[in-house]
Computed example of a mutant assay.
Amino acid sequence: MSFGVTSRSMRGICAAVALLAIGASGCSVAESAKEGIKKAARQKSVFDLKQGDCYNPNSKPVPDGEMAEEFAIEVVPCTEAHDGQVYGEFKVEEGDGTYPGDDAIVEAADTRCPAEELKFAPDTWAVPTGVSGSYYQPTKESWSTGDRLVTCTYTKDSGKITGSLKSKPMNADQLAYLKGSSALYEALWANQPEAEAVEDDLDGYKAQATAVNAALDTHVAALQGIDQPETVKLRAQLTKANEAWKKAANAADVDTFYIAYDAAFTGIDPSKSVAARKELGLSTAVPADEAEVWAG
């Protein structure tokens, strides 16, 4: 499977540790040998990773955008500092059985892994800063042996992850809020036109507004069942914002769109949901990338 790391065989790691142990002399070398044996005992095939596993790759990372192979990794208790954690997996559709190519697998992973993440950690605001999603995918060679699995994982830009990132059990109100909120922002960004100016793609921006309007309809309807003061206020605010999204979706010209869009976009500023999130017992730290977008 490939992941942007260098391949390394289980046999090679075990052999190196055995040689080190045989030739060890002195306390520091002996301790090093112990650590090597401990690391070897924790080795697990990348094909056998399971949801929730915390791990350290054996190989050094490669530059962004590059891809290399990994065979075995060190699986560790999540209570120890670690480099990654598995949050989900899915099988690539086989089609006619031939290898679909890296681009097709990447496209599938970019869609499916975020969905798996929401099952593992529904409140994405609670994921620590610097942690992002990655995945192990089949290579052309592993595909020929029956490998169809994409393993979705958390990794950190720098430093280590401490503890498991899996969410604690949530109540119905929390899950209802998070489901609607996630769908709302997914509709916003998944339908973002490539053109930066509305003048260059009015139809594209209207299609985005239509998608956000539909997601907000669902989100607001779900919030109807949550009778807590801050959530009631948020529902009223989102209802007003949705009226603006609907106007933007039906705008006859660019000027009309801009007038509606300003109120629509401001109305879904994530910072305006902090009070309701606190009331529901959810994370209240707005992710830095989202805060930056609405800060303008």
Rank of each mutant, 00 (worst) to 15 (best):
A41R: 13
W189Q: 09
T284G: 02
G133N: 07
R11T: 15
V198H: 01
Q237M: 05
S59D: 04
D255G: 03
S45I: 01
G97Y: 04
F47D: 07
G163M: 09
T239K: 00
K179F: 10
D53Y: 05
Y87H: 10
V254Q: 12
T210F: 08
T139H: 05
A108F: 08
N191L: 03
G101V: 11
A295C: 04
S182L: 03
R11G: 15
D269G: 04
V293S: 07
E89Y: 05
A291P: 07
A40H: 06
A222K: 06
L175W: 06
E94N: 12
A288H: 07
Y154F: 10
A222C: 08
F71A: 12
V274F: 02
A276I: 11
P193Q: 03
S144H: 05
S134Y: 04
H82Q: 11
L165W: 04
A263D: 14
G130N: 00
A115Q: 07
D157F: 10
D203F: 04
G146P: 08
M170W: 01
L165R: 03
L216M: 14
S132L: 14
S132M: 14
D289P: 09
G146L: 06
N250T: 11
R112D: 11
F47S: 10
Y135M: 09
G281V: 14
F90Y: 08
G267W: 04
G225R: 11
G65A: 10
E66K: 09
A221T: 15
C113G: 01
I161W: 03
K168Q: 14
D157C: 09
A236N: 05
V127I: 11
S134Q: 00
P61I: 02
V286C: 02
D217P: 13
A251W: 01
A68V: 14
A68R: 11
L118N: 00
V150D: 04
L165C: 11
W294H: 02
D64M: 12
K247A: 15
V232Q: 06
A211E: 13
H82Y: 12
A263H: 03
V198S: 10
G146A: 05
E66T: 15
S132I: 15
G95N: 10
E70A: 12
V131Y: 03
E66H: 10
T210M: 13
D253N: 10
D53M: 08
K168F: 10
K39C: 13
A288M: 00
G26A: 00
L188M: 09
T124P: 12
E89C: 13
W245P: 01
L175V: 15
A21L: 09
A81E: 14
G52W: 08
E31M: 10
S167F: 09
R11V: 15
C54T: 03
G4I: 11
S134A: 08
K44T: 15
D102P: 04
S25C: 01
T239F: 01
R11C: 13
V106Q: 06
L149P: 07
L234W: 00
G26I: 02
